[in-house]
Design a protein around this nucleic acid. Structure first.
Lengths: 343, 343
DNA sequence: CTGAAAGCGCTTACAG
DNA sequence: CTGAAAGCGCTTACAG
């Protein structure tokens, strides 16, 4: 009676029907009489039978699986994933599950060559790429994917020439929001710490927003208040030190990421400045730490949940042949202490 | 020449060999002459051919995939995964990849019934369970898994009666480490805030360590300095308030998790106590926040990387039939400011 | 060293 | 509504 690893044939024997009918019943086919269907499903449940996904996938050419490829920035040394992407993971997993897809995760390095392997090997029906925002660097990889007819969605800036579907944050709007807020609280000498080149299109867009906000106020973006570095590590500290060494006066800092902003706050404090009394600071991302540093960090938040769901809907749309569109999420300002707007 | 979705038969035709030889060559079988093997592999590479995992899995009854089941504490409301587990994810993924396994992630709720589905459906060869440390609560689930012959490893306390393989932290040693350190800096009235019951075996073990350390010093664990609550939320604050209301005098607190410790520090500060001047505080876990609160938190760290690798090795061992043993990781003390040992 | 053949466990047209 | 049959693309004894 109890079979160790039951197959649909075992269920069929027990139910006194053909194996084909079992298959239909388990997929809830309306072709099977309800009574028969219930009987078969009851037996399957009792035997702890589950459809062999390998066999089903072989027939249907589907895996009902999405591969989530996280770009490994550390090059394999450390396995600490960017916390921002990590926080998307939960939402991605959940919305994939709601649509009937499993999520396979993989950390990929730039030298890895197996991005296309996932779909070609039928392990996944499509890919979600996190951390490949810098189009210039990943161009060849993305084009190879595209040429291999791999379905993929990217979290990152939407660029016209870029192949594939992408979901991103409206970084221009975010930079505008942050800078306008600082202007609104009376700050007029706002330093920018980050990067403004094509190397980091998302950061460049935030700078654009910064400029637009200044423009609106009839102010100019002063180049001497701009810290523009390719290496983002420790940039908060280095940026502040650079500004101070150059004798610049400023009453606010717009840092392109929270990590940089928090680093900058520490550097300011160590140099005897009060934040936000002397210098207001606004970041970008709203990482968990932002609410816990002293002073708590005012920042621009991207709706991670909405973004995650859009990514999943995007890739599932591509898989199932529904029309999908690249889109931008609207960021919002989270006002805390570091900008001085709150008591 | 170029085939859209090439199969091993296409490769065989192009190479002028049988499909069986292609299969052997791609698996690096020594049965195939080297020259032939190289020729076949070159053709496969050129056509972007990858073995269909569904077909291979159907034949071999393997998926080369591990399912990572994260217990969803929020019951589906929020998809924010416990950051401690999230930080294990990277290491788990990487070491699984090194052993040739993919990782499928899933967030499960207590009511979900599909834990065994992963292996039964041949989607995964085994499971890693994170967040199922409270054996009493999950007992039935774990036993069901065990009865279905599902291979699994758990991160959590090792209990004799518990089915399956488990990797945990030596929580007794951790509690000992924390308490001994406080004693070493001259503190003598050390409050314990947490839980000491079987409901949270890991926390109970930390309390045991606390007692052992006091014992070693010829001190008694005073019950009036023990806060023992089942609800861990806001316990830091509630615990401190409870101690103060009861008029207890204490010069140190060992909090059973960092979250509780940080909460306790805030409560102490709001009640006019200086940390660590008046009261020293030590936590447990070394969450990212610990290094960023004021004062920075002295805590006990579990080696996440080592633990992750042990989990993967454990489940792969079970899958491949190698002998595996449950084991305990040695925690280490991270000395920061909140214990007063540092300037 | 290589090939012909069986079979893994499904899904789905086709026939009734 | 149900069954018999083909076939998805591999792996691996078996035979040579």
């Amino acid at each position: 009676m109890k079979v160790a690893n039951p197959t649909s044939r075992d269920i069929a024997d027990l139910a006194g029907v053909s194996q084909a009918t079992v298959s239909r019943a388990l997929r809830n086919s309306p072709l099977v009489r309800e009574e028969t269907r219930n009987r078969i499903q009851a037996i399957a449940r009792e035997l702890n039978y589950f459809v062999n996904r390998n066999a089903a996938g072989l027939r249907t050419h589907q895996s009902n699986t999405i591969a989530l490829l996280l770009f490994d920035e550390t090059g394999g040394k450390d396995a600490q994933i960017n916390p921002f992407f990590l926080s998307m993971l939960g939402y991605i997993t959940r919305s994939a599950a709601e649509l009937g897809y499993d999520v396979l995760i993989s950390m990929q390095q730039l030298t890895d060559d197996w991005h296309i392997e996932y779909q070609a090997s039928h392990r996944a029906d499509g890919l979600i790429l996190l951390g490949y925002g810098d189009y210039m660097t990943y161009r060849e990889k993305l084009q190879a994917l595209s040429q291999a007819n791999t379905r993929f969605t990217i979290w990152g800036p939407t660029i016209n020439e870029q192949p594939g579907h992408s979901i991103g944050c409206d970084n221009v709007a975010g930079g505008l929001l942050a800078t306008r807020h600082l202007l609104g609280t009376g700050r007029r000498s706002i330093a920018f710490v980050g990067n403004t080149t094509r190397r980091f299109p998302e950061l460049a867009a935030r700078y654009q927003g910064y400029r637009l906000a200044l423009d609106d106020f009839g102010l100019e973006a002063r180049p001497e208040l701009r810290v523009d570095e390719n290496d983002l590590r420790d940039l908060g500290r280095r940026g502040i030190e650079q500004l101070l060494e150059n004798g610049q006066e400023f009453d606010a800092v717009f840092a392109v990421t929270d990590a940089i902003a928090i680093d900058a706050i520490h550097a300011l404090q160590e140099n005897g400045y009060d934040v936000p009394g002397d210098v207001a600071v606004v970041g970008f991302d709203d990482i968990p730490l932002a609410a816990h540093v002293t002073p708590t960090l005012t920042t621009v938040r991207q709706d991670i949940r909405e973004a995650s769901e859009a990514l999943v809907k995007g890739i599932v749309g591509l898989i199932e042949g529904d029309p999908v569109e690249s889109s931008l999420m609207e960021p919002s300002l989270i006002v805390r202490e570091s900008c001085g707007a709150k008591a």
